[in-house]
Design a protein around this nucleic acid. Structure first.
Lengths: 219, 219
DNA sequence: TAGATTGTTAATCGATTAACAATC
DNA sequence: TAGATTGTTAATCGATTAACAATC
């Protein structure tokens, strides 16, 4: 129906919009303009309007966007209007942190199964979820209709875990391990690699003197 | 000296190169071509060559790049040839996970101070570091010459923590909280917002039937 | 020498921004 | 009506990719 290809950059901004709109809604603010959004989110208002316009006409000329309506629409676009089940592999510090994060309440993404290769961890529980051994992964993914896998294992094991997720029929992966994963086409991989973010931050940490040359500029 | 402006996208790829080069070095592989790198990292070889060429001529025509030499060079570019001190605020699950992560050994970024607003946590220790109360932040940042701050507090407190970091003289922030932070120009902010990554992943999770229309395509 | 691979220029592609008619 | 703000087209800007001479 819609032959327009939506760019990755656009999709990546939608959750940012959603997040702030939720804040506005909680403050009982009913209407917001692209200008307001742009200031708050450090984005160009034209870009925001264009992003939203890819999906429909959600605003009213001369008025702006109805906050709750826009929330509803973005949630539909992101397919967050129904619960999406998620599995996580790797119950180290990071994995446990994510399990406790519950995004379920607002965002409909729910970690419903947790796995660890370390058999001794099987049966222990994290945030009301029993840790399962890896052998049960495929079956659980199928049974619970899990669409997305989160990988929080050491770099060396990440590809192996990814492979197991993919052959279990998962269609999206959120990878926290500092490696580039390979997967069959059709499986979407997002990386949440803070080590890369931190190291690239170092590049911009000039000495104070240099700083004057380079000036302020971008963010 | 160098008036060429290096784009953000380029800088963001350098840690990815570095990471894989370190792997190669550990396997005693001496030489690598942009082709090899491209295949392994899912990037265009021309892009890799171009990225590196911004900073100098590191390769040899007909041969490729010397792995250890390239590692050394990228580390210099990213200013990882000397230790960079880092402070972290927020000792929840995520904060503790990061403290235990030690990137120090390979990457010269070292968390040397940890803070929490919750006074009752002061004095407890995480990975050999004593948690300090927020009042000590400014002084510690100065004393330990801390350049980068990591924010792992709830969304509602993140801007406040950022402000305190900035007025303490920090020059870079890695923000894990799901908000857009504001800071004076000259302070670099990187976001490590996995909630946004996860929500945008949902967009691509079509039903199996739709999947056929949209095909395989990008990653 | 023949084969391989860089560094770099030019071509392409895509994303952001400006501008403005439409209209609430 | 006057002011505000959208949706959208056109202009700009920037990033990626292709191509190839240089050369190891």
């Amino acid at each position: 129906m819609k032959p327009i290809k939506i760019s990755e950059a656009v999709v990546r901004r939608l959750p940012i919009y959603l997040r702030y709109l939720n804040e506005l809604s909680l403050s009982n603010i009913q209407t917001v303009s692209s200008q307001d959004l742009g200031e708050k989110l450090d984005l160009n208002p034209a870009q925001i309007r264009k992003d939203l316009a890819y999906f429909g006409e959600f605003g009213r000329k001369g008025v702006g966007y109805n906050v709750d309506y826009l929330i509803e629409k973005i949630r539909q676009i992101l397919k967050l209007d129904k619960t999406m089940n998620v599995a996580l592999v790797g119950t180290g510090n990071l994995g446990r942190a994510l399990c406790n994060y519950n995004m379920y309440i607002k965002d409909n993404m729910k970690i419903v199964a947790v796995f660890d290769a370390d058999m001794s961890k099987a049966g222990t529980s994290i945030n009301h979820l029993q840790v399962q051994p890896m052998q049960e992964l495929a079956e659980t993914v199928r049974k619970l209709d899990i669409a997305v896998g989160i990988i929080t294992v050491p770099a060396g094991e990440a590809q192996n875990v990814a492979d197991r997720f993919v052959s279990a029929g998962i269609r999206g992966l959120l990878n926290f391990a500092p490696v580039v994963l390979k997967a069959a086409p059709g499986v979407r991989i997002h990386n949440a690699d803070f080590t890369a973010e931190l190291l690239s931050l170092a590049y911009y940490m000039d000495d104070q003197n240099e700083e004057q040359e380079e000036g302020d500029a971008e963010q």
